[in-house]
Amino acid sequence: MAVALGATTSVISRSPAKAADARRLGAHAFVLSTDPEQLAQARDTFDVVIDTVSTPHDLGPYLRLVAMDGTLSSLGHLGPVTVETMDLLLGRKRLSSAGSGGRPATAAMLEFCAANGITAEIELLPSARVNEALDRLGRNDVRYRFVLDLSDLN
């Protein structure tokens, strides 16, 4: 979506296997978050970092990537978080959350996606394979997201 809006984008991931997908989807750069050298090179360079990690994690490394007067925006519910205030104070950084846009904003987003050919990267499974999906989720063996097709239910 950011590319469609004209932004210069980078993907930050702990998985080097996602680099090719990131570029295929329009990212201009890729930062491997498990590589200390890449994190050091990217420090203080991003105006906005959109954090889509869906499990509790340390926000510090991501705040350190944000440039002066930049924002780290969390899209998921992480539960209680602890933030080192120096990660915010040094560089006048902001921590925000996206919240929910509600129906009108969701409709506008879907219209934008349709107009720009933006689709979700998913793996579709019939609902009868829900246990397989859960097992694979537990092994971190899913490419982006599972969607269960409920049409096999009566």
Rank of each mutant, 00 (worst) to 15 (best):
A40S: 14
L88W: 06
T119G: 15
N131R: 11
I12Y: 02
A27H: 02
D21I: 00
S54W: 02
A114Q: 09
R64D: 14
V49L: 12
H28A: 15
S54I: 02
D21K: 01
R24L: 01
A133H: 05
P126E: 03
N131A: 14
D135N: 14
H57A: 06
A115T: 07
Q41E: 13
A4E: 15
M109H: 02
E132M: 09
S73E: 11
N116M: 08
P61F: 00
L95R: 05
C113I: 03
R94Q: 08
A19E: 14
R43H: 07
L78N: 04
D135R: 12
S151L: 08
V130M: 09
A128T: 03
A98Y: 05
T34S: 04
L95I: 09
M86E: 12
M86A: 13
R92S: 08
G26S: 05
S151W: 04
A40I: 00
I118E: 14
V11I: 13
R143F: 11
M1D: 13
R43Q: 12
N131G: 12
V3W: 11
G6P: 11
S13Y: 00
N140L: 13
D149G: 06
T34K: 01
P61L: 00
R24C: 00
P80Y: 09
M86R: 14
V147H: 02
A128R: 15
P36S: 10
F30V: 00
V31C: 00
T71F: 01
D135V: 08
L95P: 06
N116L: 11
T52E: 03
E123F: 05
G60M: 02
F46Y: 15
T119A: 15
L150S: 10
G60C: 05
D149E: 03
L5E: 15
A7F: 12
S74Y: 03
T119F: 10
L89M: 06
L78E: 09
P61Q: 07
V142Y: 12
T85E: 13
L90M: 12
D47W: 04
M86K: 12
A19S: 15
P80A: 15
V3P: 09
H28C: 07
R143D: 11
E123L: 04
G76K: 09
D47F: 02
A19T: 01
P56D: 09
L32P: 00
